[in-house]
């Protein structure tokens, strides 16, 4: 694990919106084979952090390097699965065409998607086990199924790092397990960063966890202490640890 290449590096990154800080002195390295979970409360800056890595937001201060480039140039190595709730569920497009959107940059300009693009899209649909739904209108699918389609859309772009923003929101429990198993499968092909406000589920699958609430607390391991959680959430937090037969819940001061 020592010789792993660092693919994303953030140094002293600050993001301010109208003078209010959303991220403060964030330092983070993501390695080639990482499966990193970033947890934190809603409004803690998780989506902002992903947008900084993707170059959608310019940090007010600090350095960001993505595959050795600026985020705008490095984003061609980064796949993105945005938060589910942002989509117009009535949009007139079928599943296959949503997945094909991930090939937009590969496809020839002024032309339709090629047969090769379609082959790759079908493969991705197989990977997420949604091939039978290729002709369905995207809005007709359940939350978990849509999430799989958006993962397939990110996969066809053939990237080395996959950023997932709250992939478990509006996904029911059995489907969550299936999605985590899908990530298990994908992690051999790419680095994965998964952002969530749900502490309990994330921790079983990822191999590193960071806590984010404006500041990032990161120890390069999966082990978290109650102090880490308190620093992040700024109040005692209930930790339901999987495989550990008790829960830690301390009193509010």
């Amino acid at each position: 694990m020592q010789h792993e290449r660092t693919i994303v590096k953030l140094e002293d990154v600050w993001v301010l919106f109208d003078g209010v800080s959303v991220l403060e002195e964030v330092n983070l390295s993501i390695n080639q084979h990482d499966f990193l979970g970033i947890i934190g409360p809603n409004g803690g800056g998780k989506t902002t952090l992903l947008k900084v890595i993707l170059g959608l937001l310019k940090p007010s201060r600090g350095q960001v390097s993505v595959f050795g480039h600026t985020p705008e140039r490095g984003r061609k190595f980064v796949g993105y699965v945005p938060q589910y709730s942002l989509f117009d569920r009535e949009f007139p497009v079928n599943v296959l065409n949503v997945v094909l959107m991930g090939r937009l940059k590969h496809a020839k300009r002024f032309k339709r998607y090629s047969e090769e693009d379609k082959e790759i899209a079908y493969e991705a649909l197989e990977t997420v086990e949604m091939h039978d739904f290729k002709d369905a209108q995207i809005g007709k699918l359940s939350g978990g199924q849509q999430q799989r389609i958006f993962i397939a859309r990110a996969l066809v772009a053939e990237r080395k790092l996959l950023l997932l923003d709250e992939p478990m929101a509006s996904v029911d429990s059995p489907m969550q397990t299936e999605l985590y198993e899908l990530f298990e499968k994908l992690r051999h092909q790419m680095a994965i960063v998964l952002v969530s406000h749900d502490i309990s589920a994330v921790s079983i699958y990822v191999d590193k966890i960071a806590c984010l609430n404006r500041k990032l607390f990161y120890h390069n391991t999966k082990e978290l202490t109650a102090e880490d959680f308190e620093a992040t959430y700024q109040c005692p937090v209930e930790i339901i640890a999987h495989g550990v037969p008790h829960r830690v819940l301390r009193e509010h001061k």
């Binding site: 959608l56 980064v78 937009l104």
Partner: peptide
Amino acid sequence: QAISFDEEFATTL
């Protein structure tokens, strides 16, 4: 079609 469906995702591509 892509920018109508999800402009931000198209940007990330």
